[in-house]
Design a protein around this nucleic acid. Structure first.
Lengths: 188, 188
DNA sequence: CCATTCACTCAACGAATGTTGACCCAATGA
DNA sequence: TCATTGGGTCAACATTCGTTGAGTGAATGG
């Protein structure tokens, strides 16, 4: 029986994807420093040197692995915005993509990851802040909403806090909704 | 002129404290992995081997360096609790001790630090949850309050997000107060 | 004054890691 | 069929790190 025959170009793409997936997985589990080129290669079933041929350095491998488009909120405002934030958080708690988990896990210890995270979060804050035109300090409020989501996500996905681990995502979202409303509303 | 004369025991305590301070500082800045025994020794003005004599391993040095009693909320309830949480957060934003910064910075990448953080946060969550007797899911609500504080602290102290960096701590606390109230109150 | 203690340094080991260059062999295409 | 391309491996280098054991010299105390 002959092998189904895979073209050279297809093989290349396949192994490149396998390496990238392994990298994302390990970066998400252990962060940048503790993830080894050798470990990535082992999971991908490949020689460590090959990883270096495909991506030129560990740093670039990380950059490519975490390259995911963060779901920016569409520009709505008022209650719809809060609903959208809550929906996003619900999705996050359901299962964040490995790329984003890798970013979050590394952002406190790897300066490059910190820069990336800072930029991404600042952009999201600006976007949300622009959708809160009728309150004081819209950007500050937006920042508090975003950092709250970050904190809850960390506690749930990366730390596995008892009280959050087994709570259903929609229950968390429900409880958080009035808090977000309070953050985005002018004092009454 | 003679040197003021320092007893052997005093010298020992002094250098031990110097090492511990340097360690705390570096652990807080760079986290566990990126902090080197050699770097700690250099900052302390001491040979790396001496660090190993005083503390038996890098791990134990870290453990000793981050040993700080987290300010547990006294058992009050209702509005007083929220006030106390807000006050605590205000203090945190003012200047968190290096030991706690070191813990937070390392908890996403170092399993031991993660365990410590998880335990500490779970304890605080239990304590706050016990002070919320008249609502549904008190522990879940407490967890959301705590993770919110963690997220805001990370965004402010460890990431340095634009919108949070230059915001006065009491302004942040003021904005966060209604959110905490919403999280700890039964639906009306 | 002298033997002892002890804070401290020096030099090195062994392991792990990112990275590199030479090499192998099957697919490719003329 | 045969030269060539290129995916993939092997072995090694250079560096860094935690950790160790021997050694030094000044403070200690009898």
């Amino acid at each position: 029986m002959t092998v189904p025959h895979i073209s050279r170009a297809d093989r290349r793409r396949a192994t490149e994807a396998r390496i990238l997936d392994s990298a994302r997985e390990l970066f998400a589990e252990r962060g940048f420093d503790r993830t080894t080129i050798r470990a990535v290669a082992a999971v991908a079933g490949v020689d460590p040197a090959l990883v270096m041929q495909y991506f030129r350095s560990k740093r670039e491998l990380f950059t490519q692995a975490v390259q995911v488009s963060p779901a920016l909120p569409a520009d709505t405002d008022g209650d719809a915005l809060v609903d959208q934030l809550i929906a996003t958080l619900g999705l996050n708690l359901g299962g964040l993509p490995d790329g984003m988990l890798a970013m979050m896990r590394s952002m406190l210890t790897d300066p490059a990851a910190a820069d990336h995270a800072r930029t991404t979060l600042d952009r999201q804050i600006g976007s949300i802040g622009a959708a809160l035109p009728e309150v004081e300090d819209p950007e500050l409020r937006a920042a508090l909403v975003i950092t709250t989501m970050v904190g809850v996500t960390i506690g749930h996905q990366l730390l596995g806090l008892e009280a959050l681990r087994d709570a259903p995502a929609d229950r968390i979202a429900t409880l958080l909704r009035p808090a977000f409303k309070a953050l985005t509303e002018p004092p009454h």
